[in-house]
Nucleic acid binder design. Structure first.
Lengths: 212, 212
DNA sequence: GTTTATTCTCTACAACCATAGAAAATAAAC
DNA sequence: GTTTATTTTCTATGGTTGTAGAGAATAAAC
């Protein structure tokens, strides 16, 4: 009853009026949640506030998310998935250092949208510290990114573009942590600031890989 | 009346009984807060819980911290100060890469105490996103650390131990972000895990600096 | 023991929260 | 218009929180 899927909603046989696409509505609600957290912080993301932001009254959320925790988990997952999709798009067709650069430029908080993403992710981390399920969401994404980075590094090494005398898995960990740190810096910066020198840090790091 | 300082408390002249050292009590309360956040997370750090953890009843905190926000801000500042003091101790008498290594090893979450510190810092970041005053605490500490890192790098360069063709201020930013990222990884890891390969990442990074 | 200033406990309160569910509104099908 | 299943509003409830303040407990000084 709760997890109505797309196909169930569009049953054209029975003469039953059904207007809302549940999956789509869930995304709408997640989007409203996202906006509130980015604008006013996690503590303002109450069920009432989310409902209002999405244009509904208090109780309208329950048919789509049975509890607040369900909603938040879905929302956080969605942000990670969206970023991962963007990464996949941007790195498609690229290899080696070129792909690695595109990957990092897509994750770094270089514009307002990704600074907002950082403002979502940091509250998520706080929740994940004491919630194994949320921590797993993070760890899966990170593991996935580590694999991608290592693949790009291996390609770059084959081509002679990476000569660093340091193991690739260590380099990948360094880079991933740099990206996480950049998100913290961006999330804590005063409203409106978008340049933190992160692009230069990335180029500098790639230069280190080539020369050493 | 609220901000009684050490000196005011120890007035030996008037015949007034006064038992509690207010400054010391504040530290006790901050310590209790610290333990709760490390053990159960920020959301469990209610005034009641903190009072109980410190061995008092609900209302006993108010004479020492007028509001919860005052307490939290003091607590977070204290964690930063403690870390900065440890850094100062450990780097005293060292210079160059040697000092840089000691600095990083002191910040990285390499043992349970510093993993707990990470579990304090991440919730702090979440609060700081929408609180300019708390964000300033973070930014000051980071600025201070950046200066220290740059000094060590300059010393190492003078000695020929750093040959990277990348500006020192960029290197410092990279390293600081790596350290922040490491704290996130540690804070989100399952209870008890203390090895994340961060020490190897540090050695790898220092190797990059020497060779490039 | 009495006095006295301080410290702490305890109860109370108003605000806010997530959640539940009854009732109203809605819109397709006939 | 009527029926019908769905969607949404609205009100209520139980729990938790930060904060306030009266009173009890405490311990030094005499």
């Amino acid at each position: 009853m709760d997890n109505k899927s797309l196909s169930e909603n569009f049953r054209g046989v029975a003469a039953v009026p059904k207007i809302v696409d549940h999956d789509e509505r869930r995304l709408e609600l997640v989007d409203a949640t996202w906006r509130i957290i980015a604008r006013q912080g996690l503590e303002s993301a109450t069920m009432r506030e989310i409902a209002t932001e999405a244009g509904f009254a208090n109780g309208a959320l329950k048919p789509y998310f049975p509890t607040k925790d369900t909603l938040l988990e879905f929302a956080f997952s969605h942000v990670f998935n969206r970023t991962n999709l963007r990464i996949a798009e941007v790195t498609a067709g690229r290899t080696g250092l070129d792909a690695l650069r595109a990957f990092c430029l897509e994750v770094l908080p270089l514009d307002e949208e990704r600074v907002n993403e950082a403002r979502i992710v940091v509250p998520f981390w706080q929740k994940a510290i004491n919630d194994r399920q949320k921590a797993a969401i993070h760890q899966e994404s990170m593991a996935q990114r580590l694999v991608a980075i290592r693949r790009f590094l291996a390609e770059a090494r084959d081509r002679g573009n990476v000569r660093a005398a340091v193991d690739d898995s260590i380099l990948a960990g360094q880079l991933l942590n740099m990206l996480l740190g950049a998100q913290i810096e961006a999330a804590l910066a005063p409203e409106g600031q978008t340049d933190f020198g992160h692009a230069a840090q990335l180029e500098g790091y790639l230069a280190l890989l080539e020369r050493a």
